[in-house]
Design a protein around this nucleic acid. Structure first.
Lengths: 207, 207
DNA sequence: GGTTTTTTCGACCGTTCGGTCTAACTTTGG
DNA sequence: CCAAAGTTAGACCGAACGGTCGAAAAAACC
């Protein structure tokens, strides 16, 4: 066997870790966060608590791995699809669409991650702020080019992100939902809301 | 003292119960849901765990009281302000505005209630569905009168409610926020998004 | 095949939890 | 002023938790 350093973490080790991460997601999603004990998670993964703590130094580290893998998966999924869009409008459409699409593909993982972050020390705010920042800049660039209406880009960015993050809840809880339809409707909603106001193009400009 | 039945639950009892509810809200909001043990909550209320369990049959019943009092307060706050609005547009404005206003007044209580519901048995979905139903009907009535654009009222209602419910998070986490501004911007966002599309009133109707 | 390393499991430990119970203290009412 | 009801606090209980440890099995290496 290799020393504790070097690259290869042994195939079995990788597989067990993935099993445990998936099991944690499953237990949190199905039985709720409070029911997610190490013993329960390990059992779900087909192993024992001792083994789980052999592959992860602590429960917190296992949860950290759940969060990290989701963020990595998400970043990869997003990156390759976000390049095509050119105009702010297309960028916004792609941003919302791609985010929601990713959530439909990993609703349980997203939901479990939200619960983990929520129930771990109070330092959650920064996460969302950072997540909303690129979106805010996107909106501001659209306003600068006159493609978007004038509104508070910060509040709007936070609202859009809130809807995106909240979507995991519905996608998980209501499997009968038409996901494609749901996504396109949310996209349409926000595209309507950022469109410039017709500043008096129609008939009556009085009153 | 009165018998266990009849009306008056004794002044002390009322006061203690209110203290404990307020303490539960404070602990959950400040130290997080997992840290909210009965001992910790009772201490925060200036009493002991034994006393807490004398006034509430169980921890679950205390949490139930936290949720119930918020819903009652919210319903009362909402009811008296919702009557004035006549048109769908005004109703929507009032609905969003009043909901957000209430949250700014009780952010910790709202946040604590969300955590409690989230971490208590999986039956959370129904709550939100019911909460979104009146809003959906409001939107549909606006569409019927031609005052609103054509869109999926269900998805839109869920999105609006998601933003409203998510607001407690920001109001709690970022005290520096300009709440009035925040509210009016969210109202404006959704009013823009439901407004009928200018189906070609301006100059160029081509392309 | 034997040795070394990795991996597994279950027994065990200390802590904390929600909840019970009892004995004491306070309030109330006649 | 005394008895009854209401209220309090803390000791206590069983269960569950995260985490440690050692002995045994599995895998890898020569």
């Amino acid at each position: 066997m290799r020393s504790k350093e070097s690259g290869s973490p042994s195939r079995t080790r990788r597989a067990r870790r993935e099993d445990l991460i998936a099991a944690a997601v499953r237990v949190i999603s199905q039985d709720g966060y409070p029911a997610a004990s190490l013993e329960r998670i390990a059992r779900e993964a087909g192993t024992s608590k001792g083994t789980a703590l052999y592959h992860f130094a602590s429960k917190e580290e296992l949860y950290q791995a759940v969060v990290t893998t989701l963020f990595e998966d998400g970043a990869a999924f997003m990156a390759e699809r976000l390049r095509a869009a050119k105009t702010p409008t297309e960028k916004l459409r792609t941003y919302v669409e791609t985010n929601l699409r990713f959530i439909t593909l990993n609703p349980a993982h997203v939901g479990a991650t939200q619960r983990i972050i929520e129930n771990s020390g109070a330092v959650q705010v920064v996460q969302v702020e950072d997540a909303a920042a690129p979106l805010r800049r996107l909106l501001e660039s659209g306003q600068a080019s006159g493609e978007f209406a004038v509104f508070d880009a910060e509040v709007t960015a936070l609202s859009i992100r809130t809807v995106i993050d909240g979507a995991a809840f519905y996608f998980l809880a209501r499997p009968e939902l038409d996901l494609d339809h749901h996504i396109s409707e949310i996209v349409a909603l926000f595209l309507r809301s950022v469109r410039p106001v017709p500043t008096a193009p129609t008939a009556d400009s009085e009153e």
